[in-house]
Nucleic acid binder design. Structure first.
Lengths: 197, 197
DNA sequence: CATAATATTGAATATAAATTCAATGAAAAT
DNA sequence: ATTTTCATTGAATTTATATTCAATATTATG
């Protein structure tokens, strides 16, 4: 690859990562193009050479987040709690390999919630919401005691909201360790899970 | 009270509540003064008659949030888990009485995280962070098995981040019930707690 | 080496949003 | 009933930020 092409990719990636971090930490409107340019150590003009607008840049990040989230972790699951354990493990290990993933995760949640973000972008993020699918798994597993009693949808909502909350706080607390997966799983865990201790 | 004074208070309160909702849902910069004015059904000019700037309005909300959080719930506690149970119960019941409290709670968390918000405002929010105090309670209670093993600060961090995450999602999901307090408590609960089931 | 293509900058320009203000209407005071 | 004070509006104005662009530097190509 030519020096130019290489540099181009590097710069593009630098913008992407810095933008992800800032958007995740401070939100869409609070993140100024100038902030991103400064973080990426380039002029504003150059940033616009790589991305035609702030919105398009943001959209690209959300698309990357969606792409990443879709990647199915192919695994066989003994008990349905493992679905949740491995979801979390998967996210944590991806973040360890590539810290940017944390920001992307946070970004997706923010995008889902913030109704001032353009609809066509929000829809991308809303499309990969985990809550419904997880609610079905919980509903099925409750009969066997894998999950605690209660409205499956509310349990799923609580679990994923808690995870989102933890990720958001982690994103601004770089010194903090990841919580143990069990701590989060216990939000939804039922008797069957407990007996297996 | 004269008609004027009454109206003045009502309008002020209307602005405060609508602003809290929008700021909590969409963040500081994504919430435009025009959005607040529209939500409160008044002109932008009038809004500025009540609050001298967007920043001052936001600051007032954060101060209210701080004020509210400081209110000590006077209660005697049999076991230290109750401290957390009652904290959550207290928040939930306050939200039930006055939905605005939910937005205030969310606002405080956002303010702590978002480094583009003026420092003097952030400091108000950062001053009432629960994590450290809760970590001490956890550390003390771990010896007796009230709390699970693990770094007390990380446990506290995880618990409060989870609560924050749930509140943030609740703020944009008006139809959703509150989770059961136990589900959240189980993030930190230890063996002693479990034996008491 | 000369020329073309692309990268980069810093300074305009355009846009959006916050803030101000002069004018008008409504309540209170005299 | 008149005057004064405050509430309210909509139209400026100012300010902040996104976006464009002409000029310059750097790399690639013949």
């Amino acid at each position: 690859m030519s020096i130019r092409e290489e540099q181009k990719e590097q710069r593009r990636w630098l913008i992407i990562t810095k933008a992800a971090e800032l958007f995740a930490k401070n939100g869409y409107a609070d993140t100024k193009i100038g902030d991103i340019a400064k973080a990426a150590d380039m002029s504003i003009g150059l940033l616009f050479h790589y991305f035609e607008s702030k919105e398009k840049l943001y959209e690209e990040l959300v698309k990357m987040g969606a792409e990443f989230s879709k990647k199915p972790q192919e695994i066989n699951i003994n008990n349905p709690l493992d679905y949740f354990r491995m979801s979390i493990e998967g996210i944590f290990s991806a973040v360890r390999e590539q810290p940017m993933v944390l920001y992307m995760f946070v970004l997706m949640g923010q995008t889902r919630r913030n109704e001032t973000i353009p609809q066509h972008i929000r829809e991308i993020a809303l499309g990969i919401d985990q809550v419904e699918q997880s609610a079905e798994i919980i509903a099925a597993g409750q009969e066997y005691g894998y999950f605690r009693e209660g409205d499956p949808h509310l349990l799923s909502f609580t679990f994923w909201s808690a995870v989102q909350g933890v990720m958001e706080q982690l994103a601004v607390t770089p010194t903090m360790e990841f919580p143990s997966v069990d701590w989060l799983i216990d939000i939804i865990k039922g008797k069957k899970g407990k007996n297996n201790d």
